Amino acid sequence: MILIVGGAGYIGSHTVKEVLEKGYEVIVLDNLSTGHIKSLDSRVTFVEGDLGNAEVLNHIFTSYSIEAVLHLAANSLVSESVQDPAKYYLNNVTATLTLLNKMREYKVMNLIFSSTAATYGIPETTPITEETPVAPINPYGKTKLMVEQMLSDFHNAYGLNNVILRYFNACGAHETGEIGEDHTPESHLIPIVIQHLLGQRQSISIFGTDYNTPDGTCIRDYIHVTDLAKAHVVSLESILNGKNTNAIYNLGSGRGYSVREIIETCERVTGIKASIVEVERRAGDPDELIASANKIYRELGWVVEYSLEEIIASAWQWHKNHPNGYKSIN
C-alpha cells in the first residue's frame, strides 16, 4: 500500500489517480485545510488528520502495510510564507520531521518528496538544471530546501531512499473532467484568466511589462498536473525497484511562455476576449524561469505529454463545468 500525504490536494488528487491506475492500493492522509474530500477516488482509504500528528501516523503505520510514502502536503503560498513564516516552518519542516521519524520507527524507507522550483530563488541562467545553485528568497522555498537537506542527511545516516521532485508551474485538469484546480484564494495565472473569461473577475492584471523578455512580461514554464502525477509514479517504481535511492529531478516542460502568451492562448482556446490591466511589477519576480527536465527523461524515461493548448483546454473544461470548484459537485 502507498501512503499519499496531501492526497486530497490539487496535485495530490491527480497523483492518487495515476498511482491507482498502476494497480497500487492507496491510503491518503490529509487535513483538508486546502484539499477537497470530493477530489478523492472512491477506491482510496482516507484518514483525516495532520501530518505532524504522531498518533495519527502511529495508527496508519500499525494498521496498514506501507511500502512507500508520497509527501505532497505543504503550505505553498509565497506571499503568505513571508507574512507568516512560523506557519511554514511548523507545517513544512517540523511536521515533515515527525513523518520521517515515524517512517524510521516503522521501517518504511521509501519516500517521494514534492519540492519546488522556489528552491532556486532567482537563478542567473536558464534553463534551470538540477546543478543550478539553490538560493531561495522566501520562507516557502527555504522550508522546502530544509526538507531536501534533511532527506539527504536521513539517506546518509539511516538509509532512507528518497526522490525529490522540484515542480515548476502545475496547471490543467484531469482528462476525465472529474478533478481540477480549486484554490482559495486562487494565485495561479491560468485559472485566474479562466475565471475572468467566465465572468468571475472584472479583468486580468499583468504585473510588469518591462521585463527583459520579447514582449516585456515574465516567462514561466507550465506543466500539466497529470504529467507531474506520472512523474511521481515513475519515481515511485524506480525506488521500489531499488534503482533510485537518492535523487533530485526538475519537473517542467523545458519551454517558457510569457504572461501575454498565456492570456492569448486562453483567448484562442475559449473564443473569449480578455480585459487586461497593466500594473506595476511585483518585487522578486525573475524575468524568466524555465526548467531543464533532461535528467528525469534520461534516467527514468519521463516525458511531457500535454501541450499548452491541451493544458488550457482541460482547465477551461473543468472550470466551466465547476464554476464554484468542488462546491459545484453534489
Rank of each mutant, 00 (worst) to 15 (best):
M1I: 04
M1F: 05
G7S: 10
A8T: 09
A8Y: 06
Y10W: 11
H14S: 11
V19F: 11
K22S: 13
K22R: 15
Y24W: 10
L29F: 02
L29A: 06
D30C: 08
T34V: 14
G35L: 05
H36S: 13
L40F: 09
S42G: 12
R43M: 04
R43H: 13
T45E: 14
F46D: 03
L51A: 07
G52W: 02
A54S: 15
E55F: 13
I60P: 03
F61W: 07
Y64D: 04
V69K: 03
S81Y: 02
V82G: 02
P85H: 01
A86H: 14
Y89V: 09
N91C: 09
N91I: 12
T94D: 12
L97Y: 15
T98V: 13
N101C: 04
R104Q: 13
V108G: 00
L111C: 04
S114N: 15
T116W: 00
A118I: 01
T119R: 07
P123C: 05
T125K: 15
T125D: 14
P127I: 04
P127G: 06
T129W: 04
A135Y: 13
P139I: 00
G141A: 05
G141L: 01
K142S: 11
K142E: 15
T143Q: 13
L145G: 00
M146F: 11
Q149R: 15
D153N: 15
Y158M: 12
I164K: 06
L165P: 05
R166W: 00
N169Y: 10
A170Q: 11
G172L: 03
E175N: 13
D182H: 12
H183I: 08
H183L: 08
S187N: 14
I190C: 04
V193Q: 01
Q195P: 01
H196Q: 12
G199M: 04
Q200M: 10
I206Q: 01
G208N: 10
R220T: 07
I223G: 00
D227G: 08
A231Y: 04
S235W: 06
G242T: 09
K243E: 14
N244H: 12
N244Y: 08
A247Y: 05
L251W: 00
L251Q: 01
G252R: 02
R255M: 05
R255H: 11
G256N: 04
R260D: 05
E267T: 02
V269H: 07
G271D: 03
K273C: 03
A274E: 01
S275D: 13
I276L: 08
V279E: 15
E280R: 15
R282A: 06
A283P: 07
G284K: 14
D285C: 12
D285T: 13
D285P: 00
D287R: 07
N294P: 00
R298C: 05
E299F: 03
L300S: 11
L300D: 06
G301K: 14
V304S: 12
E305V: 07
L308C: 05
E309R: 10
I312Q: 03
A313G: 10
Q317S: 09
K320N: 10
H322M: 06
Y326A: 04
